[in-house]
Amino acid sequence: MAATRQIDWTAAMHAVAADRAKRPAGLLAARSLIAATSAKRRPLVVAGAYDRAAIMSAAIAAARIHQGRTDSTWGEALSVTLKATWQLAKAARTAKAH
C-alpha cells in the first residue's frame, strides 16, 4: 500500500512569507547611524544620480561600527550596512524627484 502525504499549503506559504519578512540584525540601527553621520557629510544622490562612491564609503564606515557592536563577520556587517545605505539613497532620490 502506498503512503500518501498531504501538505498544508496555507501553513507552508505563511512560513515562506515569514522567512522573507525578517530583517537582518542591526538594519535599523545601521540606517539611523548612516543617516546621522555619513549621509549628511557627503550626499548619496547628486543631480538625480546615485553617488556610488559615497554609498560605498558610508556603508564601509558604518560596517566597521556595526561589526564592533554585533560581533558579526565583515561580510555580514557590510551586507547589512549596504542594504541600509541603499535604502537611504533610494529614499533621498525619491524625495528629490518630488
Rank of each mutant, 00 (worst) to 15 (best):
K90M: 02
P43Y: 06
D51R: 10
A2C: 03
G26M: 10
A36Y: 06
T37N: 14
A3N: 08
M56Q: 14
A35M: 14
A21Y: 07
M56K: 09
V45Y: 03
R93E: 03
I7C: 13
T37I: 08
I60P: 02
M1E: 03
I55N: 10
K83F: 00
G26E: 13
A61S: 09
L33F: 06
R64G: 05
K96V: 04
S72C: 02
Q6R: 15
A36K: 15
A17I: 11
Q87G: 05
R64F: 03
A89P: 04
R42P: 01
S32E: 14
A47N: 13
V46R: 15
P24K: 14
A36R: 15
I7R: 14
D71M: 08
L33N: 10
R52F: 06
V16T: 10
K90E: 02
R42A: 11
T4E: 07
S79N: 01
R31H: 06
I34D: 12
W74V: 03
W86P: 00
L33K: 15
A63R: 02
A95D: 05
V46P: 14
Q87T: 12
A29F: 08
A54M: 09
R42I: 05
H14W: 06
S57F: 04
A53C: 04
E76F: 03
A53K: 10
D71Y: 00
A97N: 08
S32C: 08
V45I: 12
A15K: 15
R41L: 11
A12E: 13
A63L: 06
R5Q: 07
G75H: 03
A12Y: 13
M13S: 12
S79M: 01
K83E: 00
I65V: 09
A49L: 06
G48T: 12
Q87S: 11
A29T: 08
A12Q: 11
A47I: 07
R23Y: 06
A3T: 09
L82I: 02
L33P: 04
W9F: 05
P43M: 14
A15T: 12
V80N: 00
T37W: 04
V45Q: 07
L44N: 05
R41A: 08
A63P: 04
L33T: 06
A62N: 04
A3Y: 09
Q87C: 03
A12W: 12
Q67R: 11
G48M: 10
A77T: 00
L44I: 05
D71R: 12
A29M: 11
G26F: 04
A97M: 09
H98F: 03
R69Q: 14
D51S: 11
A92F: 00
A29I: 13
K96A: 15
